[in-house]
Design a protein around this nucleic acid. Structure first.
Length: 614
DNA sequence: ATAGGGTTAG
C-alpha cells in the first residue's frame, strides 16, 4: 500500500509528540477519516500508549491493526510486545513474539525488557541465551534491559557480556547506559565504581541522581545518600518522589530526626504529599527516628494507603513496644480488605513478641499458614521463638523449632533461643543452642559473649572462663559499640571510654555526680560480682564507661531540664546500661528514648517500655 | 519499533 502524502504528514506530526498528546492526535486522525494510518503511524502510537500505561488504548490500536492488515508488520508487533509487557500482560507479549517469523534484535530487546520489568529473571536470561545462540549481537539496549535482573551468581555468559560492555562504555555520555551501570555497581555493592560511573556523566538526569542516592541508601551509606541529595538541591535540581523516598530511607536508617524533618519540609514545598511511596517512607522515618505519634498522624492523613504503608505503621508500633496498637491496626487492615503480606505478619509477630502478647502471636502465626498460605520464613520463626522465650516457655519454643520449615532453621532461630535462655537463666538449653550456633555461624563472637555472661550471672565462673578462652583462641573480635546523639542540628558520636569530645571533662564529672544520685535511689552498678574471675584485659574493657552513658550525660548537660533525650546505639543495650538508664530517667525526671540494634526503649520515671526484655 | 530511578519486613 502506497501511503498518501497526507499520511506521511500525519506520521511526521505524531513522531514529534509523546504520551497522551500523541494518543489524542491519533484518535483525531482516525475520526477525521480522510487518511489511512499505516504501519509507521501505529509504530509511533504504541510507545505513546505504553508510556501512559494505557493497555485499553493499546488493545484498540491492536484491533485497528488487525482490521487494516497491519498486525503482522515487524515494527507494529515490536511496539505491541513492548506495550503489553509494560502493562504487565507478559503472556500476550510472548504470544506476539512467537508469531514473528524471525524476530530481530529490537524485538528480542523489547521482550527481554518486558520480562525484566516484570521481575521474571529466568525468562529474561533464557531469551538472552537464545539471542546469543542465534548469533545476534546484543547492543546497549539489550544490556540495559538485563541489568535489573542480573545476579553475580547467575549466568556466566551474561556476566562476561556485561563486564565487557561496562569496560567499553564506562565513560559513555549515554545516560540510560550510565545509569544502568551505576545501578549494576550499586547492586554488586561496589559503591566506588558506581560513583565513578555517575561522576563521569556530563549531564545528570533525574534517573541517574536517583540511582546513585538510592544505591547509597540501600547499601547503608546513609550519610553519602543525604550528602548527595543536598548536592542535588544545591545545584537547583528539583527532587521527584523517587528521590525523596530514597533519601527518607537513608534518614530512617541514620535515625536523624532533624534531617528527616527537613526532608518533610521539602515534600511540602514540592507538593509531593499525594505520593504513596513518599508518605510511606515518611511514616517509616518518623517511627525509626523515635516519633511514633508523628508517624501515626502521617498515616491518618493519607487517603491512598497501600499494604506497605500499613506494614510500615504496624512495624513502627512493634519497634516502640506498643503491641496492642499493632494488633489493633492489623485488625483495621483486615477490615479495610487489604491482603496481608509476609512482611505484615513479620511486623505483627515482632510487635507481639516485644509486647509479650503470647496467645495473640500464636494465633497470628497459625493464621498466616492456615488462612493465607504463607510459608513462615526465617524471621517469622525467629520471632516465634522470641515470643515463647519471653514468656518463659523455653521447652515449647525448643519443640516448635522442629516443626519449622527446614529452610527457616539457622543461626537466627537458635540465637533467639539462646537469648531467651539468657533471660530465664537456663544454662543447659543455652549450651545446646550455642553448640548449634558455633557450628552454623562460627565467625560470630556474640554467642560466646552471651553464653559467658550467662554462666557468670549464675556464678558458674569456670564455665564462663572456658567459653571466653574458646572465643579468644578463635581470635573473635567484638564489634566496637558507639552511641550517637543529636543536639540541635549537630550529631555527636561517643565510643566506650571516649575522651575525645571537647567537653569530655565536664561529661565525666557530671556522670560521677549523677551516679552518686542514682546509687542513692537504689542503683547497683554491675561491678565486682561480674568481674570475678575475669581476665585483666577483659576487666579493663568492661570497666570502660559505655558510650551510651557518655551520650546521655552529654545530652543532659546540653539541654534544658525536661527536654527529651534521644540516642541511637549500634549494638544491643547491655544489662547495666539498661538498668542505669532507668535510674537516670528517674532521678533527672527526663524521658530518654534509646534506639538500639533492634528496637526502641522509652525510659520514663525509672521504667522502660520494653518491660526489661530485649 | 527496543533502553535508566522508589517505600515496609530481613
Amino acid at each position: 500500500m502506497v501511503p498518501s502524502p497526507d499520511t506521511v504528514l500525519w506520521n511526521t506530526l505524531l513522531a514529534g509528540l509523546s504520551g497522551s498528546e500523541a494518543l489524542e492526535s491519533f484518535v483525531w486522525m482516525v475520526s477525521v477519516g480522510s487518511v489511512r494510518p499505516d504501519a509507521t503511524t501505529l509504530a509511533s502510537v504504541l510507545p505513546a500508549a505504553a508510556e501512559v500505561a494505557d493497555v485499553t488504548m493499546g488493545r484498540c490500536v491492536h484491533a485497528f491493526a488487525e482490521k487494516g492488515g497491519l498486525a503482522e508488520h515487524e515494527h507494529v508487533l515490536t511496539g505491541l510486545i513492548s506495550l503489553y509487557a509494560k502493562c504487565g500482560d507478559v503472556k500476550s507479549a510472548r504470544r506476539l513474539f512467537d508469531m514473528m517469523e524471525r524476530p530481530d534484535l529490537v524485538a528480542y530487546n523489547a521482550l527481554i525488557s518486558g520480562f525484566s520489568v516484570n521481575g521474571m529473571v529466568g525468562s529474561s536470561v533464557d531469551l538472552f541465551n537464545e539471542l546469543m545462540t542465534l548469533g545476534l549481537r546484543p547492543n546497549s539496549s539489550t544490556l540495559v534491559a538485563l541489568i535489573p535482573v542480573y545476579s553475580p551468581f547467575g549466568n556466566e555468559l551474561l556476566a562476561q557480556c556485561l563486564h565487557g560492555f561496562v569496560l567499553k562504555s564506562g565513560f559513555t555520555a549515554n545516560s540510560p547506559v550510565s545509569t544502568a551501570i551505576t545501578t549494576l555497581y550499586c547492586r554488586l555493592n561496589d559503591m566506588e565504581s558506581a560513583r565513578n560511573a555517575f561522576d563521569a556523566m556530563p549531564e545528570k538526569t533525574m534517573e541517574s541522581w536517583n540511582a546513585m542516592i538510592s544505591g547509597y541508601a540501600q547499601n547503608g551509606l546513609t550519610e553519602m545518600a543525604v550528602a548527595l541529595f543536598e548536592k542535588m538541591l544545591a545545584l537547583n535540581v528539583r527532587p521527584n518522589p523517587i528521590t525523596i523516598s530514597s533519601t527518607l530511607s537513608a534518614c530512617a536508617q541514620l535515625g536523624a530526626l532533624s534531617l528527616g524533618k527537613w526532608v518533610h519540609r521539602v515534600i511540602t514545598e514540592e507538593d509531593l504529599e499525594p505520593n504513596v511511596y513518599v508518605m510511606t517512607a515518611l511514616i517509616d522515618m518518623y517511627s525509626k527516628c523515635g516519633s511514633i505519634s508523628e508517624a501515626r498522624s502521617i498515616f491518618n492523613s493519607m487517603d491512598n494507603k497501600n499494604v506497605v504503608s500499613w506494614n510500615a505503621m504496624i512495624a513502627g508500633y512493634g519497634l516502640h513496644g506498643q503491641g496492642p496498637e499493632a494488633l489493633k491496626l492489623y485488625k483495621d487492615m483486615l477490615d479495610a480488605h487489604l491482603l496481608p503480606t509476609s512482611a505484615t505478619f513479620l511486623s505483627v509477630l515482632y510487635a507481639c513478641s516485644h509486647g509479650g502478647l503470647v496467645e495473640e502471636g500464636r494465633k497470628v502465626f497459625r493464621s498466616m499458614t492456615d488462612d493465607y498460605a504463607i510459608i513462615p520464613g526465617i524471621e517469622h520463626c525467629t520471632c516465634m521463638v522470641d515470643l515463647l522465650g519471653r514468656a518463659g516457655q523455653l521447652k515449647e519454643a525448643f519443640e516448635l523449632i522442629s516443626e519449622f520449615p527446614k529452610s527457616a532453621v539457622g543461626p537466627g532461630v537458635w540465637g533467639a533461643l539462646l537469648g531467651a535462655c539468657m533471660v530465664h537463666k537456663d544454662s543447659d538449653l543455652a549450651k545446646l543452642a550455642s553448640q548449634k550456633l558455633f557450628e552454623l555461624d562460627p565467625g560470630n563472637s556474640g554467642y560466646y559473649v552471651l553464653l559467658s555472661n550467662l554462666h557468670t550471672s549464675k556464678k558458674q565462673y569456670s564455665e564462663a572462663a572456658v567459653v571466653r578462652q574458646e572465643a579468644k583462641s578463635r581470635k573473635l573480635v567484638k564489634t566496637p559499640g558507639y552511641t550517637l546523639i543529636e543536639i540541635g542540628e549537630k550529631s555527636h558520636v561517643f565510643m566506650a571510654g571516649d575522651r575525645a569530645h571537647p567537653q569530655s571533662e565536664a561529661i565525666y564529672s557530671y556522670l560521677e555526680k549523677l551516679t552518686a544520685k542514682m546509687i542513692e535511689a537504689g542503683y547497683r552498678p554491675e561491678t565486682e560480682a561480674a568481674l570475678y574471675d575475669v581476665e585483666e584485659e577483659e576487666k579493663e574493657h568492661m570497666v570502660k564507661v559505655h558510650s551510651e552513658k557518655l551520650a546521655i550525660a552529654f545530652g543532659l548537660l546540653s539541654t534544658a531540664s525536661g527536654t527529651e533525650i534521644r540516642i541511637i546505639k549500634n549494638l544491643r543495650v547491655c544489662l547495666d546500661c539498661h538498668n542505669a538508664t532507668k535510674f537516670i530517667s528517674k532521678v533527672t525526671q527526663r524521658l530518654i528514648v534509646v534506639r538500639d540494634a533492634s528496637r526502641f526503649h522509652h525510659f520514663r520515671d525509672g521504667v522502660c517500655s520494653c518491660g526489661d526484655y530485649w
